[in-house]
Simulated scan of single mutants.
Amino acid sequence: GLLRTTDASAATPEVVFDTIAAGTPLREVTTPEQFADTALFFASPWARAVTGQNLVVDGGLVKN
Rank of each mutant, 00 (worst) to 15 (best):
D7S: 07
R4K: 15
L3S: 12
Q34A: 12
A49W: 04
A39C: 15
S44H: 09
I20P: 04
V62G: 03
A22S: 15
V57E: 06
T30D: 01
S44Y: 10
A8G: 01
Q34T: 11
G1H: 09
E28V: 00
A43G: 14
F41E: 06
T51W: 08
I20K: 03
V57M: 01
G1R: 08
V15F: 06
N64F: 09
A10Y: 05
G52A: 14
T24A: 11
E33R: 13
A21W: 00
F42N: 00
G60P: 13
V15A: 14
G23Q: 15
G60A: 12
D58W: 12
T51L: 06
R27Q: 15
A49R: 12
L40D: 08
R4E: 13
N54L: 11
L61G: 03
A22D: 12
S44N: 09
L61V: 02
F17W: 03
V56T: 09
P25E: 09
A43C: 14
D18Y: 00
T24G: 09
A8M: 14
V50L: 12
A49E: 07
A11I: 01
A47N: 04
D58C: 14
D7K: 08
T30Y: 03
V57D: 03
R27H: 15
T30R: 03
R48I: 06
F17A: 02
A21R: 00
A22R: 11
S44A: 14
R4C: 03
N54V: 13
A22W: 04
E28W: 02
F42R: 05
A22H: 05
A10W: 04
S9N: 07
G23P: 02
T31C: 06
L61W: 14
A39R: 08
L55Q: 13
F35I: 07
A21H: 00
S9Y: 03
V56A: 05
L26V: 13
K63D: 06
V50F: 14
F17H: 02
A39Y: 14
L55W: 13
V29M: 01
L55H: 08
Q34R: 10
T51P: 01
E33S: 11
T19L: 05
D7Q: 07
R48F: 04
V16P: 04
L26C: 08
A43L: 15
R4Y: 12
G59T: 03
D58L: 06
F42M: 05
D7M: 02
A49T: 13
L55K: 09
V16L: 12
T31I: 08
P32G: 10
V62N: 15
F35G: 04
A36M: 04
D7N: 07
